[in-house]
Amino acid sequence: HRQALGERLYPRVQAMQPAFASKITGMLLELSPAQLLLLLASEDSLRARVDEAMELII
């Protein structure tokens, strides 16, 4: 289940942060499945989480 969510998330994360897409997707997969579904449904929520992840990385 998580694998399938990751496969759906990755291209969207890659479009926002290509250099760190794998790392960010891995970080996002730590969230609950319900939270992941919310990110897939909301571009704004996904962008906010990706921005948060980038702050942790750099």
Results as ranks from 00 to 15, higher is better:
residue 1 H to K: 11
residue 1 H to T: 15
residue 1 H to C: 09
residue 1 H to A: 13
residue 1 H to W: 03
residue 1 H to F: 03
residue 1 H to Y: 02
residue 1 H to S: 13
residue 1 H to I: 15
residue 2 R to P: 13
residue 2 R to S: 12
residue 2 R to F: 04
residue 2 R to D: 15
residue 2 R to W: 05
residue 2 R to N: 15
residue 2 R to L: 15
residue 3 Q to G: 09
residue 3 Q to L: 05
residue 3 Q to F: 03
residue 3 Q to A: 12
residue 3 Q to D: 14
residue 3 Q to P: 10
residue 3 Q to N: 12
residue 4 A to W: 06
residue 4 A to L: 09
residue 4 A to F: 05
residue 4 A to I: 14
residue 4 A to V: 11
residue 4 A to R: 09
residue 5 L to E: 03
residue 5 L to K: 02
residue 5 L to P: 04
residue 5 L to V: 09
residue 6 G to H: 14
residue 6 G to Y: 15
residue 6 G to N: 09
residue 6 G to D: 06
residue 6 G to P: 05
residue 6 G to Q: 13
residue 7 E to G: 05
residue 7 E to N: 05
residue 7 E to S: 07
residue 8 R to E: 15
residue 8 R to Y: 13
residue 8 R to D: 09
residue 8 R to W: 13
residue 8 R to H: 10
residue 9 L to V: 06
residue 9 L to Y: 01
residue 9 L to H: 02
residue 9 L to Q: 01
residue 9 L to I: 11
residue 9 L to F: 04
residue 9 L to E: 01
residue 9 L to N: 01
residue 9 L to D: 00
residue 10 Y to G: 05
residue 10 Y to A: 06
residue 10 Y to C: 05
residue 10 Y to I: 04
residue 10 Y to E: 04
residue 10 Y to F: 13
residue 10 Y to W: 10
residue 11 P to R: 12
residue 11 P to G: 09
residue 11 P to C: 12
residue 11 P to Q: 14
residue 11 P to N: 11
residue 12 R to V: 14
residue 12 R to H: 10
residue 12 R to E: 06
residue 12 R to F: 14
residue 13 V to N: 01
residue 13 V to R: 01
residue 13 V to M: 02
residue 13 V to L: 05
residue 13 V to D: 01
residue 13 V to Q: 02
residue 13 V to I: 14
residue 13 V to F: 03
residue 14 Q to Y: 13
residue 14 Q to S: 11
residue 14 Q to F: 12
residue 14 Q to W: 06
residue 14 Q to D: 06
residue 14 Q to K: 10
residue 14 Q to H: 12
residue 14 Q to N: 11
residue 15 A to M: 09
residue 15 A to E: 14
residue 15 A to S: 08
residue 15 A to Q: 13
residue 15 A to W: 03
residue 15 A to T: 07
residue 15 A to I: 08
residue 15 A to R: 08
residue 16 M to Y: 13
residue 16 M to N: 03
residue 16 M to A: 04
residue 16 M to T: 04
residue 16 M to C: 04
residue 17 Q to K: 08
residue 17 Q to V: 13
residue 17 Q to C: 12
residue 17 Q to Y: 15
residue 17 Q to E: 11
residue 18 P to R: 02
residue 18 P to H: 04
residue 18 P to E: 05
residue 18 P to V: 03
residue 18 P to W: 03
residue 18 P to T: 02
residue 18 P to K: 03
residue 18 P to M: 03
residue 19 A to L: 09
residue 19 A to K: 13
residue 19 A to I: 13
residue 19 A to S: 10
residue 19 A to Y: 07
residue 19 A to T: 11
residue 19 A to D: 13
residue 20 F to I: 03
residue 20 F to M: 08
residue 20 F to P: 03
residue 20 F to N: 06
residue 20 F to L: 11
residue 20 F to C: 05
residue 20 F to E: 06
residue 21 A to P: 03
residue 21 A to C: 02
residue 21 A to G: 05
residue 21 A to N: 00
residue 21 A to M: 00
residue 21 A to V: 05
residue 21 A to D: 01
residue 21 A to Y: 01
residue 22 S to V: 14
residue 22 S to Y: 14
residue 22 S to Q: 11
residue 22 S to H: 11
residue 22 S to D: 11
residue 22 S to P: 07
residue 22 S to R: 10
residue 22 S to T: 12
residue 23 K to N: 05
residue 23 K to Y: 08
residue 23 K to W: 08
residue 23 K to P: 05
residue 23 K to I: 15
residue 23 K to F: 08
residue 23 K to C: 06
residue 24 I to Y: 00
residue 24 I to C: 02
residue 24 I to A: 00
residue 24 I to M: 00
residue 24 I to V: 06
residue 24 I to R: 00
residue 24 I to F: 01
residue 24 I to E: 00
residue 25 T to H: 05
residue 25 T to A: 05
residue 25 T to E: 01
residue 25 T to L: 13
residue 26 G to L: 14
residue 26 G to Y: 10
residue 26 G to A: 13
residue 26 G to Q: 15
residue 27 M to I: 10
residue 27 M to K: 04
residue 27 M to L: 09
residue 27 M to R: 03
residue 27 M to E: 02
residue 28 L to N: 00
residue 28 L to R: 00
residue 28 L to M: 04
residue 28 L to S: 03
residue 28 L to D: 00
residue 29 L to I: 06
residue 29 L to Q: 04
residue 29 L to C: 04
residue 30 E to C: 07
residue 30 E to S: 10
residue 30 E to Y: 06
residue 30 E to R: 07
residue 30 E to M: 07
residue 30 E to P: 02
residue 30 E to D: 09
residue 31 L to D: 07
residue 31 L to W: 04
residue 31 L to E: 06
residue 31 L to C: 06
residue 31 L to A: 06
residue 31 L to F: 08
residue 32 S to L: 07
residue 32 S to F: 05
residue 32 S to R: 05
residue 33 P to M: 15
residue 33 P to C: 14
residue 33 P to F: 11
residue 33 P to E: 15
residue 33 P to A: 13
residue 33 P to D: 15
residue 33 P to R: 09
residue 33 P to S: 14
residue 34 A to M: 10
residue 34 A to L: 10
residue 34 A to I: 10
residue 34 A to R: 06
residue 34 A to H: 11
residue 34 A to T: 13
residue 34 A to V: 10
residue 34 A to Y: 10
residue 35 Q to W: 05
residue 35 Q to Y: 13
residue 35 Q to R: 05
residue 35 Q to S: 08
residue 35 Q to F: 09
residue 35 Q to C: 08
residue 36 L to T: 03
residue 36 L to P: 00
residue 36 L to V: 13
residue 36 L to F: 02
residue 37 L to P: 03
residue 37 L to R: 07
residue 37 L to V: 11
residue 37 L to E: 15
residue 37 L to A: 09
residue 37 L to M: 10
residue 38 L to Q: 15
residue 38 L to T: 10
residue 38 L to V: 12
residue 38 L to F: 10
residue 38 L to P: 10
residue 39 L to Q: 00
residue 39 L to E: 03
residue 39 L to S: 03
residue 39 L to C: 06
residue 39 L to G: 01
residue 39 L to K: 00
residue 40 L to V: 05
residue 40 L to C: 03
residue 40 L to D: 04
residue 40 L to A: 03
residue 40 L to S: 02
residue 40 L to K: 00
residue 40 L to G: 01
residue 41 A to L: 13
residue 41 A to Q: 11
residue 41 A to E: 12
residue 41 A to F: 08
residue 41 A to V: 13
residue 42 S to Q: 08
residue 42 S to V: 06
residue 42 S to T: 06
residue 42 S to I: 04
residue 42 S to R: 05
residue 43 E to T: 08
residue 43 E to H: 07
residue 43 E to Q: 09
residue 43 E to W: 07
residue 43 E to V: 06
residue 43 E to C: 05
residue 44 D to C: 06
residue 44 D to F: 03
residue 44 D to N: 09
residue 45 S to C: 07
residue 45 S to Y: 14
residue 45 S to W: 06
residue 45 S to Q: 14
residue 45 S to R: 14
residue 45 S to F: 14
residue 45 S to K: 14
residue 45 S to T: 08
residue 45 S to M: 14
residue 46 L to K: 00
residue 46 L to V: 02
residue 46 L to P: 00
residue 46 L to D: 00
residue 46 L to H: 00
residue 46 L to F: 07
residue 46 L to Q: 00
residue 47 R to L: 05
residue 47 R to Y: 03
residue 47 R to H: 06
residue 47 R to T: 05
residue 47 R to N: 04
residue 47 R to W: 03
residue 48 A to V: 11
residue 48 A to F: 09
residue 48 A to T: 09
residue 48 A to M: 12
residue 48 A to L: 12
residue 48 A to I: 12
residue 49 R to T: 10
residue 49 R to D: 02
residue 49 R to L: 14
residue 49 R to M: 12
residue 49 R to N: 05
residue 49 R to I: 10
residue 50 V to S: 01
residue 50 V to D: 00
residue 50 V to P: 00
residue 50 V to G: 00
residue 50 V to Y: 00
residue 50 V to C: 02
residue 50 V to A: 02
residue 51 D to R: 12
residue 51 D to T: 11
residue 51 D to E: 15
residue 51 D to C: 07
residue 51 D to V: 11
residue 51 D to G: 08
residue 51 D to N: 14
residue 51 D to F: 09
residue 52 E to R: 09
residue 52 E to N: 07
residue 52 E to M: 12
residue 52 E to K: 11
residue 53 A to N: 03
residue 53 A to S: 07
residue 53 A to P: 01
residue 53 A to Y: 14
residue 53 A to M: 12
residue 53 A to F: 13
residue 53 A to W: 05
residue 53 A to I: 15
residue 54 M to T: 06
residue 54 M to K: 07
residue 54 M to G: 01
residue 54 M to I: 07
residue 54 M to D: 00
residue 54 M to V: 09
residue 54 M to R: 06
residue 54 M to Q: 03
residue 54 M to E: 01
residue 54 M to P: 00
residue 54 M to Y: 11
residue 54 M to L: 10
residue 55 E to H: 12
residue 55 E to F: 08
residue 55 E to Y: 10
residue 56 L to A: 10
residue 56 L to V: 13
residue 56 L to M: 11
residue 56 L to I: 10
residue 56 L to K: 15
residue 56 L to G: 06
residue 56 L to H: 09
residue 57 I to W: 04
residue 57 I to Q: 02
residue 57 I to K: 00
residue 57 I to L: 12
residue 57 I to E: 02
residue 57 I to D: 01
residue 57 I to P: 01
residue 57 I to T: 02
residue 58 I to E: 09
residue 58 I to P: 04
residue 58 I to S: 10
residue 58 I to W: 08
residue 58 I to N: 14
residue 58 I to D: 08
residue 58 I to A: 12
residue 58 I to M: 13
